[in-house]
Simulated assay, not measured.
Amino acid sequence: LRLYEMFMGPLDATKPWNTESVPGVYRFLQRVWRLFVDEDGSLSAKITDTPLSKDLRRVLHQTIKKVGSDVNSLNFNTAISQMMIFVNEFSKAAELNRDAMVDFLKLVSPFAPHLGEEIWQMMGHSDSIAYAPWPDHNEDFLKLDEVEILVQFKGKPKARITMSPNLKPDEMEAVALAHPDVQAELGDQQIIKVICVPGRLVNIVCR
């Protein structure tokens, strides 16, 4: 119920009490437990010292930043939503980096303290997780190496291509026009102008 009340919405908003929504929050806690604990009750064998992939590292630091910010502003519902995203992404991994899981457990613990304490002890700690320092995020790990850019012809979506999010408009245009899918769509048409929105889309106006 503690987590459900936090997940209902902003503290200053009027929210309907609906017990039918409680099982959804309970399922989330079960997924957190299964992320850390095997069926025999021991610490998950998936938790190792294997390095984090770039994608999972980004999710971790997005979660640290989002949860920390939302806790400070008392937006507990969106903090929980971000932790759900973390669980979804990390559940797909064959191995789980121990340090990343420790950081995530520190984020979960204020929302589900009994679960947090039990797993904390299973991970070999003798003191309370309440005394563990809050994790810090690294802005450099939040940056994307590549993003998917929508390419439109006369405002209609025609292709999706990947490129660096740091490209300038003229560089985006060059990459887009050189792409085989764009060239095939363009054919013999004459380009009137190309509108580029960095990190988002390229719109080609032609006739």
Rank of each mutant, 00 (worst) to 15 (best):
L60K: 06
D70A: 10
I80N: 03
T48P: 08
P51F: 01
Q82E: 14
N72A: 14
L52M: 11
T48K: 05
N75H: 07
I64H: 00
N72C: 10
V67H: 07
R58T: 13
K66Q: 04
F76W: 12
I47V: 03
K66R: 13
S73G: 00
Q62L: 08
D49M: 01
L52I: 03
V71K: 05
L52T: 05
S69Q: 09
S81P: 01
K54Y: 12
S73T: 15
N77E: 12
I47Q: 10
V71R: 01
R57W: 03
V59A: 07
D70Y: 04
N72I: 11
V71M: 10
T48S: 11
Q62V: 03
P51Y: 00
K65S: 10
Q82K: 14
R57S: 15
T63F: 02
K65W: 08
L60I: 12
P51S: 05
R58H: 13
L56A: 02
I64G: 04
V67K: 06
K66G: 01
I47M: 09
H61E: 06
L56H: 15
K54F: 09
L56I: 12
A79Q: 01
T78E: 06
S53N: 04
K65Q: 13
T50V: 06
D49K: 07
I64C: 02
F76V: 11
Q82V: 02
K65H: 11
R57I: 08
N77W: 13
L60T: 13
D55F: 08
L74R: 08
I80Q: 06
K65D: 12
F76S: 14
F76P: 14
K66W: 00
V71S: 02
L56Y: 14
P51I: 03
T63Q: 05
T48Y: 09
T63D: 01
A79L: 06
Q62E: 09
K54D: 15
S53P: 12
V67R: 04
R57Q: 15
S53E: 12
D70W: 00
N77A: 15
K54N: 09
N75M: 05
L60Q: 11
L60H: 13
